[in-house]
Design a protein around this nucleic acid. Structure first.
Lengths: 219, 219
DNA sequence: CATTTTGCAGTCCAGAATGGAAGAATCCCG
DNA sequence: CGGGATTCTTCCATTCTGGACTGCAAAATG
C-alpha cells in the first residue's frame, strides 16, 4: 500500500532510525520493570524515563502517552511469551497430550522467571475493572486460555488430570507456576525457597506436573 | 504500668473517644481497599481520606504518616485472618491431619474471598525488596508458614500429599487458593469463572484439596 | 553534498499530591 | 459547668505529574 501511495503522490515515510529503536527498547524495558513494581497508577512517566536513562518527554514523542506506553510494554511481554510458548509447543508437535502439557508448563515457568512482570501485571490490573484489563483479556488471555482448555479437557478424559472444572484447573496451574516466580522476593525469606538457585525452576515445573497431572500416559 | 505511672505522678491519658475509633476504622477500611487496588506508591493519602469520607489531615493525626497507615491496615488484614484461621483450626482440634488441612484450606479460601486484599498486597509488596515486605514476612508470614510446614510434612509422610519440598507445596496451595480470589475481575471474562456465584468457593476449596491432598486418610 | 525528515534536549505549564502548621470545635472529667 | 485534653478543619508551601512546545542535532534520501 505505501509504495502505491508514493506512486500516487503521497509522501512515503522514511525508515525508523537505529537510535530511535534503541530508545524505544530502553523505554519499554524500563516501563515493564516500573509498571510491574508499582502498577499503572503508581508509576510516573518520569520514573520510567529515568530508569531508561532518557529525557521524559521522549515518552510522549515515541508512545503518545502513558496509557499507550503501558499497552506497548504489555504487548511486548505477552507476545514474547506467546512466541516462547509456541516455539516450545512446535518442538513437541505430535507428542502425547501429557508431553505437550508438560512442555507448556516448563515453558511457562521458564518465562515467568525471565519476565515475572507478566504475572505481576495481571494481578495488578485485575484489582479493579479498567480498560487495560479488558484489553489484556481480549488481546492475550482469552486466546491463550481457550486454546489450553481443550488440552486440559483431553487430559481429564484420559485420566491424567483430575476431574472438575477445566477452567479452574487451568488457572490453578497458571497461578502455581507463575505466582511462585512473581513472589520471588518473598519466598526466600518466608519459606527458604531460592528461585535463583540452579534447579529450582525445574523443581517447580516438575512439582506442578506431579500435582496437576498425576496420571500416567496410556501406552 | 500506666496505672502505676498515674500513682507516681505521671499524667494518665484519657480514654479514646468513640468518634475517633470510628474515624480510624473508616480510614483503615478505606486504606485496605485503596492499597490493594493501587499498591503503596499508587495510593495517595487523599484518595484514602476521600474513600473514608474524612478530611485528609486526620491520617497524619491518627496514623502519623502513610507508611504507618499501611502497617496498621496490613496488621488488621492479617490479624483478622489469623483469628479466622485459628477459630477454624480450634474446631478441628484432635481431628486427623488431613481434616485439619482441609479445614485450613476452606478457611483460607473463605477469607481470601472476604478480603482479597491480603493476597494482592502480598504480591504487590513482593515486587521489589522493601521494608514493608520485610515487616510483613517477619510479623505475619513466617510464623504462619512455619507452623504449616509441619502439617504438610506430616501429610507427605502419610502419603496424603505428594512428595517434594514442603515449602514449595505449601506455597502452591496458597497461590492456588488465594490467587484465584484475587484475580476475581479477570476470571469472569477470561475463563468464565464467577467467584461470586454460590458454590464457587467450595468448588475451589474442594479442587485444591483433590489436587494437593489426593491420598486417603488411613483408617 | 543539500535538503528534508526524524529524533532529541531543554523549558514550561496547569493541576494534583504531599506533609505539615495553626486554630476551631468537641468531648471528657472533676 | 469550666479547664484541659482530644479530635477535627482550614489553610499553605513545596514537590510531583502528565503532557505541550520550541529549536537544535542527527540521519536518511536523492
Amino acid at each position: 500500500m505505501s509504495e502505491q501511495a508514493a506512486a500516487s503522490g503521497e509522501k512515503v515515510p522514511r525508515k525508523q532510525q537505529q537510535r530511535s529503536i534503541v530508545t524505544q527498547q530502553k523505554l519499554l524495558d524500563a516501563a515493564i520493570q516500573a509498571f510491574s513494581e508499582n502498577g499503572f497508577k503508581g508509576t510516573s512517566t518520569r520514573d520510567i524515563a529515568e530508569r531508561a536513562g532518557v529525557h521524559h518527554p521522549l515518552i510522549t514523542y515515541h508512545f503518545k502517552n502513558k496509557d499507550q506506553l503501558w499497552r506497548a510494554a504489555a504487548q511486548k511481554v505477552f507476545s514474547d511469551f506467546t512466541n516462547s510458548l509456541s516455539e516450545s509447543l512446535e518442538s513437541h508437535r505430535g507428542k502425547s497430550p501429557k508431553d505437550r502439557m508438560c512442555a507448556m508448563i516448563h515453558a511457562y515457568v521458564r518465562y515467568a522467571k525471565e519476565q515475572p512482570a507478566m504475572h505481576k501485571v495481571m494481578v495488578q490490573e485485575s484489582s479493579y475493572a479498567n480498560p487495560r484489563l479488558e484489553w489484556l483479556i481480549e488481546e492475550h488471555l482469552q486466546p491463550f486460555f481457550e486454546a489450553t482448555f481443550g488440552l486440559i479437557t483431553e487430559l481429564q478424559q484420559l485420566g491424567i488430570a483430575p476431574a472438575g472444572n477445566p477452567a479452574l484447573l487451568f488457572n490453578m496451574i497458571r497461578l502455581s507456576s507463575g505466582g511462585l516466580l512473581a513472589l520471588g522476593n518473598e519466598l526466600k525469606d518466608s519459606s527458604g525457597i531460592d528461585i535463583d538457585a540452579p534447579g529450582t525452576l525445574d523443581e517447580i515445573a516438575e512439582m506442578v506436573i506431579q500435582v496437576f497431572l498425576p496420571g500416567e500416559a496410556p501406552a
